[in-house]
Amino acid sequence: MTSAILVSILMTLVAASTPILLAALGELVVEKSGVLNLGVEGMMLTGAVAGFAVAYSTGSTALGLAAAGAAGVAVGMVFAILTLSLNANQVATGLALTIFGIGASSLIGAGFVGRTITRLGPVFPDALSDHPVLRAVFGHDGVVYLSLALVLAVGLFLRRTRAGLILRGVGENDASAHAIGYRVIAIRYAAIAFGGALAGLGGAYFSLALTPMWADGLTAGRGWIALALVVFAGWRPGRLLFGAYLFGAVMTAELQLKAAGIAWLAPELLAMAPYLATIAVLTMMSLGRQAGRAGAPACLGKPFSAS
């Protein structure tokens, strides 16, 4: 009995964490290349609605996920063209992108409100995914495993590969990277595309796996949590994973407490808990490291123009 509850809590936790993890991981790569894209929430919403629309129309959640990624990339490219090629301010453009994403998703999604689709299902056969205990490991959908694999892949990419070294170099000192002969703008375009794809995928996880339906503002500000996570995780994928799951854990605890009907604690206070707890824990983690250089790319948010 208790094990069944624990497993169920774990399943909820993982599901709640995955979209934030995906979006934050994408933004981490973007920021490592020296670009600050505050439009994560907008890209997530666009991905959520595009994913739902395509999944509803075609009946295929896989196609929906692909469309969500593509939509995220498309919105990301708007940001990239404005900030990289036209040198618009990154902060202002990112904020505008979020507002655009809220509006555009609402417009596109108007015809889909109230419709339902088949939820994204587990990848492993029923014997594993329905097993009362083993489903804690094998009962998740493909996106969960993909997100975990991506954490590992991004970590290895940044630490161990030459391409990752170049990406970090571009974020650390764009002028030097340009002087050596790297194509700063092209590398940043690629990073933003990657970030867009993951944000779109993260958004679609709401509309295809969590709810599964479309409603305006479905992502409920998770894009902002993802942005904060990147900073609090010190731009490290491992810590990002920890932070995202921590957030998911507190959120799950909140739901459990609500279900248990704790009357003396205002539900609003409970709703705040995941945000506060995540920030508190990650702040304490970063206190241990030397002050000043917390892994922030030196060129983060600065415009670059080759001259």
Binding site: R162, L165, R168, E172, N173, S176, A177, A179, I180, A298
Partner: peptide, 24 residues
């Protein structure tokens, strides 16, 4: 060797050297 170095402050010496090479 430029007057203003093309270096990446947060990275190690060996990473900086690797970034300056054309071949992987």
């Amino acid at each position: 060797v430029f007057q203003h170095f093309s270096l990446f402050d947060a990275m190690s010496v060996i990473e900086n050297i690797a970034l300056g090479l054309d071949e992987a």
